[in-house]
Simulated assay, not measured.
Amino acid sequence: MRASTRRARRTARVEYTLPRKAASARWARQLTTGFLIGSRTPPEAAGRLDEAQLVVSELVTNATRYGRGRCRLRLSTSAGRITVEVRDDGVGMPVMRRPGLESESGRGMTLVHGLARRLNVSAAPGGGKTVRAVLDAA
């Protein structure tokens, strides 16, 4: 067997449009896995697969639960970073809450904030927002 001579690109980017359905978070995790272990992304990106899947799952869940219509998932890798962006047409902004000990939800944005090197939310022209989380890939 011969080793591949194809080198991973320094940067790679994909974008997906997902329906407003509960299953979209599962689909987004699968798409993230395919992207990060693919031959076009740096090998170190696959080492952060679990963290990236969790961030993607939380952001897509929020977009499909609180947004209106479809959401857009954009994944990119560059210079030791994985960037996850989720855009939706919802009017509300994400909030980090302090859920009670018995609460079954409300921890998602806190988890994302803890995993991301940088987390920001920007209002989109014409309505909606984009939530961007940047993770270290090394």
Rank of each mutant, 00 (worst) to 15 (best):
P125N: 11
R68V: 12
P94G: 06
G92D: 15
V112E: 04
N62K: 11
V112Y: 00
T5D: 13
V131E: 08
R87Y: 09
I82H: 06
T32R: 13
G108H: 03
S122M: 08
E51W: 00
A45W: 05
M109D: 01
S105N: 10
A138W: 03
S24R: 12
P19S: 13
L115F: 04
R65M: 08
V134Q: 10
L101A: 15
A138N: 15
P42F: 02
P94Y: 01
T77W: 02
G100K: 15
L36C: 05
T64P: 11
T64L: 04
I82T: 07
M93Q: 08
D88A: 08
L111M: 13
R7T: 11
E51K: 03
R97C: 07
T17Q: 03
L101V: 12
E85A: 12
A116V: 01
V134I: 05
R97T: 14
A137I: 07
R10K: 13
R29T: 12
T61K: 10
S57D: 11
T5C: 10
V84W: 05
G34K: 14
Q53K: 15
R26P: 00
A12Q: 04
L36G: 04
S78K: 09
W27K: 15
R65E: 09
R9C: 13
A3L: 09
E15M: 05
G47P: 09
A116Q: 04
A116T: 03
R13M: 03
G92A: 15
A3M: 04
P99T: 06
S76G: 15
D50I: 03
A116L: 02
N120M: 06
T11A: 13
V131F: 01
Q30T: 11
G127M: 02
K21I: 02
A116H: 07
E51T: 04
R74S: 12
T77E: 02
V95Y: 06
L54V: 13
G38L: 02
G108F: 00
V121P: 00
Q30R: 14
V112D: 05
A137R: 04
K21C: 06
A79H: 12
R81T: 05
M96P: 00
P94H: 00
A124N: 12
R98K: 10
E15Q: 10
S122D: 15
A8L: 04
L18T: 03
V134G: 05
T64S: 11
T5E: 13
R6C: 03
E15L: 08
T41W: 05
R97Q: 09
Q30D: 13
R6P: 02
T61N: 11
A137S: 14
Q30V: 10
L135E: 05
L75M: 02
R117T: 10
G128Q: 12
V131W: 01
S57L: 07
A124L: 07
S24D: 12
P99L: 10
S39Y: 10
L73S: 04
A116M: 02
E104S: 14
N62A: 14
S103D: 15
G92L: 14
R2V: 09
L75P: 04
I82R: 04
G106W: 05
R9K: 15
R29V: 01
H113V: 05
P19N: 08
D88M: 09
R98M: 04
P99D: 05
S78Q: 08
V14K: 14
D89S: 14
G34P: 06
R40S: 10
L111P: 08
T83M: 00
T64E: 08
D88C: 08
P94R: 01
G34D: 15
